[in-house]
Design a protein around this nucleic acid. Structure first.
Lengths: 253, 253
DNA sequence: CGTGCTGTTGAGGACGATCAATGACGGTGG
DNA sequence: CCACCGTCATTGATCGTCCTCAACAGCACG
């Protein structure tokens, strides 16, 4: 949509949040020798990809997924602008895991070669920022695990939407429409498409999601967070902590 | 049980696997000024703990958990000897998340003060080993997420048992009995205690788990991995990759 | 103007939750 | 040595959430 976001703004916000220095962003972007566009539904990274390069999502939304034995896609996480798509392969190359990354919208990807990454990581501030990003990734997985394990479909879907909304806002994207389909939600929440559809209709009838249009559009964030019992503070977003924390306070009323 | 394991053997194995150097272990252990014993069922770390120290599990098994609004415990991950219990709090202190760590067996914990951690991390080999540990943690969460989201209770429980068995073996612990109860499995798999019990009885009737005694004792690992569709290679354990990978090969017959 | 993808609706059935009660085991103290 | 207690394991019955199958409608695309 807003193609001018390719400047790396979200990435800059994210690095700053992780404690990197101002010039770390410039140096990182300098190492990007190539950018590619990927249309929606295409693979950004194949399930058997072994290229010696790290990809960073600049524009759009992707998901990392795994194929189940029955052929269905299981979405493990979403990536938003500023997120690395396959940093794990660079850091822990031993890990064998057939995971692909697919574009959910039209995307722009930055590519950095491994040999250039080596140089980048000699900067301690950047290295520790990326370490924090890894820990944060683990925390996000952990939180999703806790929301998946228990609770009704309504709560699980609401939690998923809250997480994505908060992460988008954390990188400066404040659109109420979420950039993925009900099918994507189903594959990510571990629910059937049919049931996700009914769940979303429930959320619409509660005036939490917009009733107009096909897109998943959040119109009552506070209520959504209440349903999800979502406490956004785990995402470590100082600039947003207040916003989401306030909602938690409200819940106690 | 084997109190002489307090020497740090599992921790050494783990660090070695993560690419640390031989003397990194010694230096890490030198920073441990205090060790504590925690009896089974006690909290290792309270849900509101803010002490400026990092804990490493030396002996026993712990879980990190979260209380759900209904008061029930939801287990997010297990820790085995050599694992850090709360490294994330040191690295990403902003993250607010009410997570506790509970001893499932009698445990021995090593404690390192934050100020000593700062010194330790000036060693690049140790810092990058801990970075890898963080990524590996994220990978483990991701894999659990993929097994939780889909599949029947039988598969989910089997996957959980496989993961713990493999991780225990990775640090040199080769006992067939798993160090936790059916209740713990239920809280970790997001299933009711009753249904976990029935699932385990199914596994026993399939001669996958031992029929004698209360403990969860794996007698047919190959079959268990087949049921779980478990591919242990994601754990990045070179010394065990062969073992578990072979089973995957067998599955194709 | 068809073709594909996504969204929507209905009906039936399965898996797992919940409630309730009992059994088995180990530890503790009389 | 035995009675008691707490924790964990086990069993049966009922109920509800969510899955599956199947069909159709709406929209965007060439």
């Amino acid at each position: 949509m807003f193609a001018d976001c390719g400047s790396g703004l979200p990435l800059g916000l994210k690095l700053k949040r992780l404690g990197a220095q101002a010039d770390d962003l410039d140096i990182l972007l300098l190492a990007v020798k190539r950018r590619v566009s990927v249309p929606a539904r295409d693979n950004v990274i194949g399930e058997a990809d072994t290229a010696a390069q790290v990809r960073i999502l600049l524009v759009g939304t992707t998901c990392s997924y795994k194929r189940k034995e029955d052929g269905n896609r299981s979405i493990l996480s979403f990536q938003h602008p500023g997120d690395f798509c396959d940093l794990h392969r660079y850091i822990v190359p031993d890990v064998k895991s057939v995971i692909g990354v697919q574009a959910l919208t039209d995307c722009t990807i930055a590519i950095i070669e491994y040999r250039d990454m080596d140089k980048l990581l000699s900067r301690p501030t950047l290295a520790s920022a990326l370490w924090r990003a890894s820990k944060l990734e683990a925390v996000i997985y952990r939180e999703r695990l806790s929301s998946m394990g228990a609770g009704t479909a309504l709560k699980r879907v609401a939690h998923l939407l809250c997480e994505q909304l908060a992460r988008l806002e954390a990188v400066g994207i404040h659109a109420p429409q979420l950039p993925f389909s009900q099918i994507d939600v189903a594959d990510a929440a571990g629910l059937s498409i049919v049931h996700v559809n009914r769940t979303i209709q429930t959320l619409r009838s509660l005036n939490v999601l917009s009733k107009a249009g096909r897109a998943i559009e959040v119109v009552d964030r506070k209520q959504l967070a209440r349903i999800a019992e979502f406490d956004g503070r785990y995402l470590s977003m100082p600039e947003l902590a207040l916003k989401w924390a306030v909602q938690i306070e409200d819940m106690r009323n």
